[in-house]
Design a protein around this nucleic acid. Structure first.
Lengths: 218, 218
DNA sequence: AGAATAATGTAACCGAGTTAACTTTGTTCC
DNA sequence: GGAACAAAGTTAACTCGGTTACATTATTCT
């Protein structure tokens, strides 16, 4: 609080906004720490609020629900698939772009691919998948992701919006299941490096299946 | 209560069981009627319990959550896709069986296809899709449906369990989106008969896409 | 500095879901 | 038919997520 008050340009975020941002992160981090220690359902939001030194109504002014204390991170990923399609090189097909992006995520051990054995990420995933109400809310995010991807695909192909939406549904479902499978194995004790080969071939096969159809079942 | 007590064979369901069944239906029906009148969120479960002449804890012994008062009907459909695959004629492929089943649903105006302009069904669908917490819980049912279908496909093909699960994810997503699209148009005022042709061709194209892949995006 | 505005805290409230103690009712075995 | 047992029901009180009303405090604007 030294030189902050002199900032009055309309351009940058004001004191209030920055304060809010910091509080947002702080509360979420406090909450997740508590949830990891004792389990999501065992920690009342009143306890989170107390630990973060704010009142309960204030907490709910920052986060609409208890679940969002954990899941707001996923809000950033809602547009990911649609962005990948929208910003791909002109000559690259949407599916190619998405496949590359997913494989790239596997290499970087991006948490969203499920292939990540970092202790904290693993603990976080256990928290996530082990709490039904969190999983339920995760589906809401995926629905938005699906809608966004549908729009991007529709624009990319210039064609049928329903067909695009159907394609988006299949793609998001595939990514979800691939990530879940990777996490399942990591959770069972395998290392990311051990799982990586299978994860890679599984992803390639899955995208191949998206491209060429469910021939084994047709 | 005239001749019920004489039934003592271990085979048939006793008085208690039958009473439970009747109560189950009665409570659910009472609840849905109230929800349709005033909206899901505007009716406290206490009011439902009072209207059904039972206490609140009893209500929750019948239904684990408020949402299940509405959604228990879908529990019957959880195994539908997997059953279709498991009980199909030997020479028919899983996808063919599922496609036939879906088209058959369209013809019968089965509510699960979304193509149904019956006043009560339409009102029910509005209640369903217009209530976020109900939609959220619907996804849980679909996840179970997906898992069951995955198992059925895996057994049908005798092959890769993961591939089967991925296929199941794609199929369930497609059916969900087709049904949603049909409902959307019916909700917008079109009759089922008016929508039927589009719904049929859309379904055929969608299953075609499942069989032969997302070629427009690859 | 001081008025206007936005964020916070307090306290009380609502509704979903649970628990415990106790009564009623269906089942069972003589 | 009636005692004994278990399942289901009621009541009342409780926990917890989330909201509301209102007073208080901080921030911004002039």
């Amino acid at each position: 609080m030294t030189d902050e008050e002199v900032v009055t340009e309309t351009g940058g975020p004001g004191l209030r906004e920055r304060k809010r941002q910091r509080m947002y992160e702080a509360v979420s981090e406090t909450a997740i720490t508590l949830f990891l220690e004792k389990g999501f359902e065992k920690v009342p939001v009143a306890e989170v609020a107390a630990a973060a030194d704010i009142s309960k109504p204030t907490l709910f002014r920052y986060f609409p629900t208890k679940e969002d204390l954990v899941l707001h991170r996923f809000a950033d990923h809602v547009d990911e698939a649609s962005r990948v399609v929208a910003t791909r090189p002109t000559k690259r097909s949407p599916l190619d772009a998405l496949q590359r992006h997913f494989l790239d995520g596997l290499e970087r051990q991006d948490p969203v691919t499920g292939l990540c054995d970092n202790v904290h990420v693993l603990a976080f995933h256990r928290l996530l998948y082990g709490t039904p109400s969190l999983v339920a809310r995760l589906y809401a995010y995926q629905e938005r992701s699906e809608a966004a991807l549908g729009k991007a695909l529709s624009e990319a192909s210039g064609g049928d919006a329903l067909a695009a939406r159907l394609a988006a549904g299949q793609i998001i479902a595939v990514q979800r299941i691939l990530a879940l499978e990777n996490w399942r194995r990591i959770d069972a004790g395998e290392t990311a490096e051990a799982v990586r080969p299978d994860a890679t071939t599984a992803a390639n096969r899955a995208f191949g299946q998206l491209r060429s159809g469910l021939t084994p079942y047709a």
